Amino acid sequence: MIRSATPEDVPVIARLIRALAEYEKLSHQVILREEDLTRHLFGERPHAEVVLAEEAGAVVGFALFFHTYSTFLARPSLYLEDLFVLPEHRGGGHGKALLSHLARLAVERGCGRFEWSVLDWNAPSIAFYESFGAVPMKDWTVFRLTGEALTRLAGRT
């Protein structure tokens, strides 16, 4: 079963984010605080949404997503930031159910695109996404500013 997260789900969302970071070998980058998640997901101006996959009443996976905008299409896009299913629950259709749910939301919301990024080494996920017809955008490179570089560009050094 897929359902929208509520503020009461923040502790489980935080645990799943940490489990995803561990899987991606990026735990050292996780600095999240549950109060920030609560504010950013359920506050006055939510920045993202979360849906949860449940099995027998227990949360076994999640997807965190938000909207971007395509100027070429002049339509919103749905961007999947994180998709994660606990390893012991993989192969049970939860990942596909989460993706299908988000695809339906994208269509219902008039989105022209549904996009996400995947680590180059994550062959199982790449094969999973390609099995649904997703195509890698090989001509595009993701750029990121964080920390001091972000502050410097913002003119607040």
Rank of each mutant, 00 (worst) to 15 (best):
G112C: 04
F72P: 01
A21L: 02
L83Q: 02
F65I: 03
Y23P: 00
T38L: 14
V59T: 12
A48D: 05
K138G: 15
S77H: 05
A134R: 07
F65G: 01
G110N: 02
F72G: 05
L98N: 03
A134S: 10
V51D: 07
V107P: 04
E24D: 14
T68P: 13
I31E: 14
S125W: 03
F65N: 02
I126E: 04
L78F: 01
T146L: 09
P87H: 04
R109F: 04
W121H: 03
R39Q: 13
S131R: 10
S4N: 14
L98T: 01
G110D: 01
P7A: 03
P11M: 06
P46N: 09
W116P: 02
Y129F: 14
H40L: 13
A14V: 07
F143E: 10
A127Y: 04
H28Y: 15
G93R: 03
G112E: 00
C111A: 13
A74Y: 08
P136S: 12
F143I: 13
A21W: 02
L102F: 00
L102Y: 01
E44G: 06
L99Y: 13
F84P: 00
T141I: 07
D82G: 08
T6Y: 05
A123H: 12
A19F: 01
P7N: 08
S70Q: 00
T68W: 15
W116V: 04
H101F: 15
E24Q: 08
A103L: 06
E49Y: 14
E24T: 06
A14Y: 10
S77E: 12
P136R: 15
Y23D: 03
H28N: 12
R152E: 13
S4F: 09
E8F: 12
F42K: 01
L119K: 15
E35F: 06
T71G: 04
A154T: 07
F62D: 03
R15C: 09
V60T: 15
V118T: 03
L52Y: 05
S77V: 05
P136D: 03
R109L: 10
R15A: 14
R18Y: 06
N122K: 01
R15G: 10
R90C: 08
L83Y: 00
P46L: 04
M1I: 11
L20E: 00
F114G: 08
L78P: 00
A154R: 12
S4M: 13
S27D: 05
I2L: 09
E108V: 07
T141M: 12
Y129C: 01
E24G: 01
E88Q: 09
V59I: 12
R45E: 07
P11D: 09
T151K: 10
R45F: 10
S4T: 14
P124E: 06
E108D: 15
R152A: 13
A154P: 01
R144E: 15
A74V: 11
L145W: 14
P11I: 09
F143D: 07
S131T: 04
V107K: 14
G92S: 05
L105C: 08
M137N: 12
S125C: 09
Y69Q: 02
R45C: 08
T146P: 00
H101K: 12
G61T: 06
F114A: 10
R113W: 11
L98C: 06
G92T: 08
A63K: 00
G91S: 14
F66T: 07
Y69W: 15
F128A: 11
A97W: 03
D9A: 06
V118Q: 00
F65R: 02
E44M: 08
